[in-house]
Computed example of a mutant assay.
Amino acid sequence: MADNSASEGSLGTIRGAAIWAPDGRKLAEFYAAVVGVTVGNAYSDEDGSEVAFPVPVGDSTYFFITAKSFKAPDWPAQELPFHLDLTFGDVKAAEKRLLELGATKPEFQPGGGRWTVLLDPSGQPFCITQTR
């Protein structure tokens, strides 16, 4: 629900999201390839290990974070806290390319053909649909 009492200067802008995975670099490279950009300079933790990998997309940046204890959700048995929706001009060609990049296609496909669910290399679901 929008807060209509907020002044213009007090409103925020969502600039991106952080997504955890067992190998943040690998997942960043996957999504960077999907959208045709390159992974930015990695961020290190307090021990100097690279753990956060930025993928700039337009005015947003998505960070893919290495979390060794990460476990992909058991979808569809478990609800998802969030997922990404990606659009393409040619969904069939995109699906083929995404599978070649390391995505997999689960048997369960909800949505009646309006979208296709794929799993990224970390096992997290994302959806692809036709660009409107």
Rank of each mutant, 00 (worst) to 15 (best):
T66E: 08
R97F: 00
D23N: 08
K68W: 00
G112A: 09
A21H: 03
E46A: 05
D23S: 08
V34G: 04
V37H: 09
A42L: 03
R132W: 12
A32S: 10
A32T: 14
R97D: 01
L84V: 09
F30W: 09
G58N: 11
P22N: 08
Q124V: 08
G40W: 03
K71A: 15
H83P: 00
A21G: 10
Q109K: 06
G102E: 02
K68N: 13
H83T: 13
G111T: 06
E46Y: 05
S10F: 14
V91N: 01
F126K: 08
W20I: 00
Q109E: 15
G111C: 07
G12M: 12
A52K: 13
P125D: 01
K92N: 11
S7P: 03
R25V: 04
D23W: 02
L84S: 12
T13K: 15
A6D: 15
S60K: 12
A93N: 02
I65W: 15
V37A: 03
G9N: 15
A2D: 15
S44C: 11
G111V: 12
P54F: 15
G113T: 09
F53T: 12
Q130D: 11
R15C: 05
Y31T: 15
R15E: 14
A103T: 00
K71T: 14
R15Y: 11
Y62P: 02
K68S: 06
F126E: 01
E79K: 11
N4Y: 06
D85V: 13
